[in-house]
Amino acid sequence: MRRSKWLHVPFWATYVFLYAPIVVLVVMSFNSGRSAYTYEGFSLKWYGELAQDERIRDGVVNTLIVAAGSTVVATVLGTLLAVGLARYTRSKTLDALALMPAVLPDLVLAIGLLVFYGMIQLTLGLYSVILAHGVFSMAFVAAVVRTRLSNADTSLEEASRDLGAGPVVTFMKVTLPQLTPGIIAGALLAFTLSLDEFVIAFFTIGNNEQTLPIVIYSMIRFGVTPKINALAAILLLVSFTAVIVGQRMTKIGESRAED
């Protein structure tokens, strides 16, 4: 890697670009004013208010349920689909169909599902959002997993089949382990997209439930307050901690394994 030092420039540029607004956002969470975008002075009051806001708390819980649920659905179905498309068919139409939800305008999917749920008289709730988010998340998982499958070395899988293993056994013992990085990337993407999705969630959720994005968009009429920044700051802190702890754990696990 020594030779490609110049690659470090765009690498670090990417992270600076991604985190510059995050720094601003965290600073604004300490704003003493009401606005999420004009800084007036230092205060911790929004953290206090956040602790007392039931609606935001419910919103966070609902959002996490939806994101986790749809990520599970999407990761399982999307991975299967990716393997099926790469190994068991040559149809370009099916390829296109599998990618379609990832590229369809969210509003169109939202209205389609709203009309469809109405037709089959489905009572809306959180699960109807999970199903809806599953649609586009699955497409992202399938596509990311596909990039690992296409052109991959299939000799192991063939060997497994020649030795008499069925498709399911081959998949579990041979294909799946090779796919893990792609599945992780896909699942991360699915979870991330669901967390912040507004349009589809709004149209497919029951009237008395709200995900966090719905709560926040609805706040616009009276101004989005730094409470949301405070929430974001806490969320980031928790996520960072989880990532670092997770990384420490793998480190310990690995060093033990090496011993």
Binding site: L18, Y19, P21, I22, L25, M28, A36, L188, L189, F191, T192, L195, D196, F198, L212, P213, I216, Y217, I220, V224, I228, N229, L231, A232, L235, L236, S239, F240, V243
Partner: peptide, 11 residues
């Protein structure tokens, strides 16, 4: 992906 776990509007 972490920056995207915060809300879109405030980003």
């Amino acid at each position: 992906v972490l920056p995207f776990w915060t809300n879109f509007i405030i980003r």
